[in-house]
Design a protein around this nucleic acid. Structure first.
Lengths: 112, 112
DNA sequence: CACTTGCGAAACCAAAAGGTTTCATATATA
DNA sequence: TATATATGAAACCTTTTGGTTTCGCAAGTG
């Protein structure tokens, strides 16, 4: 099943798992050992992350290592980016407005 | 209640609502009119978006206009950004690897 | 071989999500 | 003022979620 990345990162535990294995892959037990909830619960989260393509699992002996595939976050990143100019715009107007106030107070300068 | 932005954008309907009001504010009825689900259901989504700070509502007569506050997406954007170098790094290594292959094929150059 | 580890999956649960209908209320409008 | 509009909220229902326990099995170890 190919899960939704947006939904996969909606849960704080799952974001924590990703942060945990972002720089170094860890086996399932080590990951779950870092949480208070049961191994089974953590395992389910890992499964969801895997279904979203955010985690890949490779077997090494009896251990399974979880590798983070952060590139998958691009889906989310791109969605957000399309709106960035919107809020930049807003900030720009605010800045312009403040500048105007500033100029009004110090009088003088009028170049735009 | 201050909801989680990650969770607020996890639902596709809510993302659609945001896209719908990103460039122009719309009243509740107009927004819900664009969906097949009931007005009440859409209203609940709007409520969740509002609790996450992604939407603000302003009354105008008997209508309530929904204004998108996309800046709130920065929370998510920032979280993702901290990992961007990770996948860029990976792409860089891939590029380096491909370069190496290329060099091997065209023989010659050996500088690493 | 017997025993310990590290998993994967199933059975079961309570709470949260996402919908629907219905009802009440504040604002226009005829 | 009586009627139509635009909402907000409550009551209810079905699925999903996020957890827990328990069981089975394959891979190392003494």
């Amino acid at each position: 099943m190919t899960r939704d990345v947006f939904q996969a990162i909606a849960d704080p535990t799952r974001r924590e798992i990703l942060g945990m294995i972002a720089y170094q892959s860890l086996n399932v037990n080590t990951v779950s050992g870092n949480f208070k909830i049961s191994r089974a619960a953590v395992y389910k989260h890992i499964k969801i992350l895997r279904e979203a393509g955010l985690v890949e699992i490779k077997q090494a002996g009896r251990e399974r290592y979880c590798h983070a595939k952060m590139e998958k976050l691009l889906t989310v990143s791109d969605w957000i980016e399309q709106y960035r100019k919107l809020w930049n715009q807003k900030l720009d107007s605010l800045e312009a407005y403040l500048d105007k106030l500033q100029n009004k107070n110090t009088a003088a300068k009028k170049e735009n």
